[in-house]
Design a binder for these strands. Structure first.
Lengths: 197, 197
DNA sequence: GTCTATACGACGATAGAC
DNA sequence: GTCTATCGTCGTATAGAC
């Protein structure tokens, strides 16, 4: 299964390029990465790049789309397999923490893609599909009485704002320990901020 | 007083440039703004720009430094004039909310400057001077018993993470009402997340 | 300190053979 | 679909007069 997947990635030039640019954009930034750089690092020629993605921004768009879909799928799965808003939101935070440790480049790109001057037309992360899914769970929790009645944006921001800041701190190299080490404390704080009692 | 200040800004080419680039960087982004653009909009010649700031990145650095110092001064003032950690942190959040409404460009630049591919060597916002000052107040609150004992990074992130997410939502145009409308609810959630009881 | 004019390089994008 | 070679543009930065 895994080898099939790996082979598929190596054969598919599109996926090969996306894997490459994720690394390049994360370490140098979008504007410091030239199309020639992408061509050289991925082994795909400039002509093919333009054939597949249209223009340079198209590469960034495709990357964002792919990662956004993956994250949405994970959150949807949690929504379907956990009953209470408490459990759903806790598992979302846990998943975000896990992703930060196993794929820091992905988290970094997702958190900051919209604010990095490229992808001008993309909606900010907080109105993106993954965040919308999470917001819906918070709304349900308010209806069920798990979460105190309040503005939905305030509740969602309060619940996930702390965890997100911790993730950013970890990505910035401020926290030395893996995020699992902080999970219980972080989630306890987050849930207290909105819990009904 | 105000006219003197205004005159001073208009006469001082440095300040004139910084006011101009704040607007340009915010609306088009750093890389989409050329040095020629800055020259034209500010009325300062290209030669003078390089004379004063060394290179293009130097302009962004100077802007960040100025705004960071202003914010640090405000937070220091709060630290000196409020006794409890609760009051200090609440007033910090209130000040951040006020700044977001009165100077949205400044808040936008401060929150995202480090992650916008320019200023590569600058430390991330969470290790910057203003954030350090806030962290120290949280630490004091933990010693005094106002805040539950826990990891300092977790406490600071939990306390300010929610408010910061709300600020970002407002800057992104998701929230229609001014932030003062949300302040009480936001602060209530934030404080509950770390309060001793 | 301020200005204009210009050098120089790099970039995104395309053309066109295979 | 893939590739190489090349074009035209625009950017930063500097030179040098005032």
């Amino acid at each position: 299964m895994k080898s099939a997947n790996t082979a598929r990635r190596a054969d598919d030039p599109r996926q090969l390029v996306l894997d490459t640019v994720l690394a390049l954009f994360s370490e140098r930034g979008y504007f410091a990465t030239s199309v020639q750089d992408i061509s050289r690092e991925s082994g795909v020629s400039v002509g093919s790049l333009y054939h597949h993605f249209g223009d340079k921004a198209g590469i960034a768009r495709a990357l964002y789309q792919t990662l956004s879909d993956r994250m949405s799928a994970r959150i949807s799965w949690i929504g379907a397999h956990r009953k209470t808003a408490h459990d759903q939101c806790r598992d979302i935070v846990r998943t975000l923490f896990d992703m930060t440790e196993s794929e820091p480049l992905v988290m970094d790109f997702m958190l900051y893609a919209k604010h990095r001057d490229f992808l001008p037309e993309e909606k900010p992360i907080c109105s993106s599909k993954p965040f919308e899914l999470a917001r819906a769970m918070v709304a349900a929790g308010m209806v069920s009485g798990e979460i105190r009645p309040m503005d939905l944006n305030v509740a969602t921001s309060s619940l996930f704002g702390g965890p997100i800041r911790i993730i950013v701190s970890r990505l910035d190299g401020i926290l030395q320990a893996p995020l699992t080490h902080y999970f219980d404390e972080v989630w306890d704080c987050a849930w207290r901020s909105v819990a009904a009692r």
